[in-house]
Amino acid sequence: MLNVSLYRYNPETDEAPYMQDVQLDTGGKDLMVLDVLEKLKAQDPSLSFRRSCREGVCGSDGINMNGTNGLACITPLSETVKQNRLVLRPLPGLPVVRDLVVDMSLFYQQYEKIKPYLINNQPAPAIERLQSPEERAKLDGLYECILCACCSTSCPSFWWNPDRFIGPAGLLQAYRFLADSRDTATDERLAELDDPFSVFRCHGIQNCVAVCPKGLNPTRAIGHIRNMLLQRAT
């Protein structure tokens, strides 16, 4: 029997969040954490969590498993369970709506700030804006982000200043558009980032790199943004 400790909070009935200890028979299988949650929900339908694709593509089921953020659907028990114990908490640093469901508004506001779309003031070509294979290759490791928020919610700088620090997810996307040969708003984008909070709250501790379920490297992207700011200003 697997010992599971669940973060429970229903703001309509609970005065404060609490940890609920439950036991689950996994049948000796190396289940994914999402399977465990589904089985627990079958036992207690009031348990709330987000999920959708169950294959690490949609980014809905980012939670904190035994202290580490990740996607429940692609994290097998063998990777996270220690001493037959699994502690499940919501992503840290964001307001909890209920149980494992967090309010992602602050995360999305930061994403919105970096204007996550192509800006090009040149007349649109008849068919498409072409890129060389080399220019396209610059976007690898950037465009794959699924906005699960595992990185930003593992970042202490984002915990303390979620309203002012863009956070690793937003900055990875900021660089995705700064690096795009078809985007012509590079200077405006950089000007928006040159304050003491938006980018420079990153102290390079790389929690984001350690937890990214897609294996991306926001710290490296932030380094590239710093270099672009430095080149622009010196």
Partner: peptide, 18 residues
Amino acid sequence: MVTSVTNLGRSGLFDWVV
């Protein structure tokens, strides 16, 4: 852009370089 008047320079980059 986040406004700040108490950091050393007026830009984040300046503080970082310093």
